[in-house]
């Protein structure tokens, strides 16, 4: 296509001129606040960091772990962090609460929210929980946090009214049969139960996504001001992060190792098989399968508007921002420009 040799030479000269500019001294320091403790949920960012994808974009990224006492959106809102990972519902809620976040890239497009119930809560011979209606009047523990809306939407859609108990950091109450069902993420709590002696055949699982509550999850966010001030920076970060995810998908063992390194450094009470499970589930819900359904890294308008509608209905937000305002397409815009 480019037949003129002079053009090649010019391009080569340009590369030679640009590359030295991206020396270590000139890396731009940014920080990424994770939604939770180190775990495979964030393996793509670890890979982007470890494999130098951030550095290649001229970024010096500090990854800050989240957790019970560390709120990523608030940190970004307060200007402590440049980027954060959070869920769509949370981001919209925070935006209305005064933290003007915009989406740079949507990583997890499939919902991992589930309700896990004991199949036979009253022991052998008692009434069984096999369908959502069986949860009627049952004690169900649900996260107290911003995830709650989706469960409410689920109960409403099924027309059931369980006795909802708060759920915090552990599943001890469910395990001790203090509750008949509990909320769980497929990639985390569900497998945690299996690792603590619960047999799959003793459980009934209701994935919320299967019941019309398809709320996209993890996305990369930045303040709207950051995006407007330096879209190139945001694009570069989003691009490098997605590249990290692609790499993690191609090299799951490396991604697992990178995760375990961080888990062990932080002395977190988890284990490798659990992280492997989580990685697999996160990759499955990030990358579309053969049937498609979504584009990796993007949030579709339909998905966005369905989520907004649900949040509006339950009063989580009073008004939904425009798709074009909230969803920057930082990743795709720049991908196309390359």
């Amino acid at each position: 296509m480019m037949k003129h040799p002079g053009l090649w030479l010019a391009l080569g000269a340009l590369i030679v001129a640009v590359v030295p500019c991206r020396g270590a001294a000139e890396l731009r320091p940014v920080s990424l606040y994770l939604q939770w403790d180190h775990q495979s949920q964030f393996a793509g960012y670890y890979m982007a960091q470890d494999k130098g994808f951030y550095e290649a974009e001229g970024l010096d990224v500090t990854i800050v772990r989240g957790g019970p006492n560390c709120l990523p959106c608030e940190s970004v809102g307060a200007g402590k962090g440049t980027f954060c990972i959070t869920m769509l519902a949370t981001a919209l809620e925070k935006r209305e609460a005064g933290i003007p976040l915009v989406l740079l890239a949507q990583v997890v497009n499939r919902s991992n929210f589930e309700i896990v119930a004991w199949k036979k809560p009253g022991g052998e011979g008692g009434p069984e929980i096999l369908a959502p209606k069986d949860l009627q009047g049952r004690r169900v523990t649900i996260w107290e946090t911003d995830f709650r809306t989706q469960y409410t939407a689920f109960f409403d859609s099924q027309g059931i009214h369980p006795e909802v108990l708060p759920q915090y950091y552990t599943l001890s109450l469910f395990l001790r049969h203090g509750a008949d069902a509990c909320s769980a993420m497929r990639y985390n709590e569900y497998h945690w139960l299996l690792q603590h002696g619960v047999r799959e055949e003793d459980l009934t699982v209701f994935p919320l996504g299967d019941y019309g509550v398809p709320v996209p999850e993890d996305g990369i966010y930045a303040l709207e001001s950051t995006w407007k001030a330096d879209p190139a920076l945001c694009s570069a970060f989003a691009r490098a992060s997605l590249k990290g995810w692609e790499y993690a998908r191609a090299h799951p063992d490396e991604a697992l190792a990178a995760t375990m390194t961080r888990v062990e450094e932080a002395n977190l009470p988890t284990n490798r098989p659990h992280m492997r499970w989580m990685l697999e589930e996160i990759l499955n819900s990030s990358f579309p399968d053969a049937n498609g359904g979504w584009t990796f890294g993007s949030l579709s308008r339909a998905s966005y508007e369905a989520s907004c509608a649900m949040l509006l209905k339950y009063g989580v937000i009073a008004a939904a921002p425009k798709y074009e305002t909230f969803v920057t397409k930082a990743e795709s815009g720049n991908v196309e420009s390359q």
Partner: peptide, 12 residues
């Protein structure tokens, strides 16, 4: 109050 030592006896 969210920790098990409160949470469990409270609900159990």
């Amino acid at each position: 109050m969210m920790q098990d030592w409160c949470y469990l006896p409270r609900h159990l």
